[in-house]
Amino acid sequence: MRVTSNTFPETLIQQLQLLSTRQNRLQTQTATGQRIQNPEDDPAAIQRILGLHTETAAVRQYRANLDNLNERANVAFNALKALKKISDRAGELATLADDTRSDQELQTYATEVTQLIQQAVQILNQKHRGAYLFAGTRTDQPPFALTTDPDGRVTAVTYQGNAEVAAAPIDTGVNLAIDIPGANNTGTGPRGLVADSRTGADFFAHLIDLQNRLLTGDTQGIANTVRPALLRDEEHLLTHIGNQSALIARIQTVSDLADKRILSLDQAVSREADADLAETLVRLNQVQTAYQAALQSGATILRLSLLDYLR
């Protein structure tokens, strides 16, 4: 077979270009730590990496939702504890109001109960990040409206929210609701915080009843009617506190699992995309050696230096 005079130079140039391309790619891998720079480097791995990135993005969003839920749940939990203190004091006043108390003392107790009602409304009307906590899904308006008479006594506390609560996704196909509607007398759905027809809880109504009976000196009615009602309200509130505490614990557990899942996914991406530095350096050294050998052999065979050849 006849070989033309320019066959070897052309082959040498092609070999040098191939080695140079490999050398550049390995140098880039060494500098960046990434095995894959372009989709054509490893199409199968690219597909796996894209799937891992999609899954990681979803888990990170779930993790962000959990952070928001945890924050809101803790604010609500603190409100429940503050409400429990009001419930405790109301129970104490209902116990103190017996036949041994003077009318003036009962009037003083009534004034304190009025203040307790106002304080409870203030607690339950608080916002978090611009949204009311205990209004159900009507988070743009205060859940409770207070009505007083000319003497400043509370005559009514009206619930303006609804009995619905929003849920946020915390995993694939899993939604979690942490809000508590202020009241729910529909007989279904989440239990209301201060009023619920299923348990007979109606905290504000019973506080107003206590206030009014103190004003009239009806200590017998307080003992027989108001005190048992306040005890039921307290049990109802304790149930909410227990449930909220359990929700916070669940959020923390799921958050920890999400963190571990994100770490695992990041490690999987790293295994697919990251270059093995030791192996890459060995390969780079081999390619550089081959490149220098090609230059030397070419120069020897052609009896010219690389610079001469390039001219």
Rank of each mutant, 00 (worst) to 15 (best):
G130Y: 07
D202N: 11
T147Y: 05
T148C: 02
V165E: 01
A135V: 07
V165H: 05
L116R: 11
F204E: 01
D149T: 01
A195I: 12
Q141N: 13
G136H: 00
A183N: 09
A120Q: 10
P190R: 05
V194E: 11
A163Q: 15
Y132W: 07
A167C: 13
A168D: 11
R153L: 10
Q115T: 14
N125M: 03
I123Q: 06
V174N: 07
N185E: 13
Y132D: 06
A195P: 13
A131H: 09
D202F: 02
T148P: 09
P169L: 01
A156T: 10
A110Y: 13
A131G: 04
T199S: 12
Q122M: 05
G161D: 02
G187Y: 13
Q119F: 01
I178H: 05
R153E: 04
F144D: 09
N162R: 05
T137S: 03
A135R: 05
V121G: 08
T188C: 00
T158Y: 00
T108R: 11
R198H: 00
D196N: 07
V157E: 04
P143T: 10
H128F: 12
T148E: 11
Q107V: 08
Y132V: 04
G161N: 04
G130F: 06
T155L: 06
L116K: 15
P150R: 06
L176K: 03
G130T: 09
L146G: 00
Q119P: 00
T188S: 08
H128A: 07
A201T: 09
A168H: 13
D202S: 06
L124H: 00
A145H: 15
T111A: 11
V154H: 08
N185Q: 11
Y132Q: 01
A166D: 13
V174A: 12
G200K: 14
Q122C: 00
V154Q: 09
A145C: 10
P143C: 06
H128S: 08
F134N: 12
Q115D: 12
E164R: 14
A131E: 14
T172M: 02
E164H: 13
V113G: 00
E164Y: 15
V113E: 02
I180A: 06
Q118R: 15
L106A: 01
A135N: 10
Q141K: 12
Q160P: 00
Q141P: 00
Q141F: 11
T199I: 05
T114Q: 14
G161P: 05
G200T: 15
A168Q: 14
A131R: 13
T114I: 02
P190E: 03
L116C: 14
A135T: 08
L116N: 15
G187H: 08
L133T: 03
Q160A: 07
T139G: 15
Y132S: 06
D196C: 04
T186E: 12
D149I: 00
P142V: 03
V121K: 14
L146T: 00
K127C: 01
V113D: 03
D196V: 06
G182L: 10
P181T: 04
T108Y: 04
